[in-house]
């Protein structure tokens, strides 16, 4: 058996040298299984309102042929699901403790709801009552919208001096900054006050277009306005 093996390997060696030998289905794989989906998997469309749009333009059955990634562990088609809340929970999360982060955010929403209901009952006229938003998720959306900056300052080095140059900001970055500033303002609290309480106050302030975060946004805008003379450094 050994002799045959040697002979065989000898033959293959000669062929190797002759033909730049590369086996047809050699695979270079480091892991036992893939740890992600290939590129051609499409992102799932699992929310009912988005699917309704697809059905309207008759795209659904066409899309059904192609492979689709499964939705993530925190995504559902339930009416209570909100992508922005999901994003917020992920920002609040530390060291992968998602359950705790979710509890904190939900507790903050409860506090918002309590404060708003109190205000609702204290309001004297029907008009004043109608103005009060009771849904904490609406308040969150409103707060984030009010905190979003429209411009950003980029440090650009020209002639050995770093200039703070105003530049337009992407949607994604402005959302990130809004959430980050909200959480920064919340964590800047006394030790006796808990996160849900402080976060509820910050949300209500921001939704009302007042408070630390909105001030921070306005400061940034003011700085951008002051540095408008440097704007041309973006392309020069």
């Amino acid at each position: 058996m050994n002799s045959i093996r040697y002979k065989l390997s000898g033959v293959t060696c000669s062929v190797l040298q002759a033909a730049n030998f590369r086996p047809a289905y050699i695979q270079c794989r480091l892991y036992s299984g893939p740890t992600s989906f290939p590129d051609f998997f499409k992102n799932p469309i699992f929310r009912k309102e988005e699917q309704a749009k697809l059905i309207e333009i008759n795209e659904l059955s066409k899309l059904a042929i192609s492979p689709v990634k499964p939705p993530g562990v925190s995504e559902t088609s339930s009416v209570y699901y909100d992508p922005l809340v999901n994003k917020l929970i992920n920002h609040v999360m530390k060291m992968g403790k998602k359950q705790l982060a979710r509890e904190l955010v939900e507790k903050a929403f409860e506090n918002v709801k309590r404060i708003q209901i109190e205000r609702y009952h204290l309001a004297s006229s029907a008009e004043a009552k109608a103005k009060i938003i009771l849904n904490p998720k609406d308040i969150l959306h409103q707060a984030i919208e009010n905190c979003r900056p429209l411009l950003q300052l980029l440090p650009i080095k020209r002639g050995g001096i770093v200039y703070q140059v105003p530049a337009p900001i992407t949607e994604k970055r402005s959302l990130f900054l809004a959430i980050k500033w909200l959480l920064d303002a919340t964590n800047d609290k006394e030790r006796t006050i808990h996160f849900p309480q402080q976060f509820a106050w910050e949300l209500l302030d921001a939704a009302n277009n007042t408070g630390k975060v909105v001030k921070r946004k306005q400061d940034l805008h003011r700085q951008c306005e002051a540095n408008r003379a440097y704007a041309h450094y973006r392309w020069q």
């Binding site: 299984g33 799932p44 699992f46 990634k69 939705p71």
Partner: peptide, 16 residues
């Protein structure tokens, strides 16, 4: 069934 497929519910998550 097609809606479920587009929602990714029928795809097995083989990631480890």
């Amino acid at each position: 069934l097609e809606a479920m497929q587009v929602a990714g519910l029928l795809t097995r998550d083989h990631r480890r």
